[in-house]
């Protein structure tokens, strides 16, 4: 079963809800190594997204995701706004005109998103950022695609790898973003950006599974 534009809408709604529920948790993570605003910024951004896409039931996936991207850029601020905004814009470009996505298209969509985050943030794997959730997820997605597993399982594996990647950020030394100012003291804390990235990927897996 491919992922439909309705699934994408439901995913965005679920992400909004999950980010709202985790507002305080994300902010708590950000207090330890950042500036205590990641939860409220993501919550504010996705609330705006829900309003923006409320009338877009018939829109194709590319249009939906591009709308998410521009809305996040306009409302989130901080580093998360340009990074998530660019990720969704690139994902939208990769899915332009599509009403549904097969496994290979899902992987291509995430590949575009990851390339966008790398370019905007001038970052790579292992720097204690959202990429440490996204890159393992993308790799798991590629592997799952090689094995021709069903889309639901592909997404579960991606979310699972994002979660492991997120947990692995605890031991990483931050070299990008505000946490990098802490040097060695950034070790021992889970990265808030990797955490919101996992929440969003898990929301997609859960949406398509249900």
């Amino acid at each position: 079963m491919p992922v439909t534009n309705k699934d994408i809408l439901h995913w965005l709604q679920r992400s909004t809800q999950v980010l709202h529920e985790n507002n305080a948790f994300l902010t708590q993570l950000d207090s330890a190594i950042g500036d205590a605003d990641h939860g409220s910024n993501m919550d504010r951004g996705f609330s705006a997204v829900i309003t923006k896409i409320s009338g877009m039931q018939e829109a194709d996936i590319g249009t939906l995701l591009k709308t998410v991207g521009t809305t996040l850029v306009s409302t989130v601020g901080g580093a998360s706004g340009p990074l998530y905004g660019t990720a969704f814009l690139r994902a939208g470009m990769a899915t332009a005109g599509k009403q549904h996505l097969e496994g290979a298209e899902i992987v291509a969509m995430f590949e575009a998103a990851v390339e966008g985050i790398k370019a905007r943030g001038k970052a790579q794997a292992g720097e204690k950022t959202m990429l440490d959730a996204f890159i393992p997820a993308l790799e798991a997605g590629k592997q799952a695609q090689l094995e021709q597993v069903p889309v639901t399982e592909l997404l579960q594996r991606m979310a699972g790898s994002a979660e492991s990647g997120m947990k692995a950020t605890i031991d990483l030394l931050a070299t990008k973003g505000r946490a990098s100012y802490l040097g060695e003291r950034s070790i021992g804390h889970q990265d808030p950006g990797a955490t919101s990235s996992w929440l969003i990927l898990q929301a997609l897996a859960d949406t398509v599974a249900s």
Binding site: T27, S31, A32, I33, G34, D35, A36, D37, S40, R178, Y181, L182, G183, R185
Partner: peptide, 28 residues
Amino acid sequence: VPAAGKPTFELGEDEMEIGIGIHGEPGR
């Protein structure tokens, strides 16, 4: 931070943080 509702980090009565920035982030 008003939206966070509690101090960004805790400092004891006899402690200070050296090398802070301007966002309530801990220093060096």
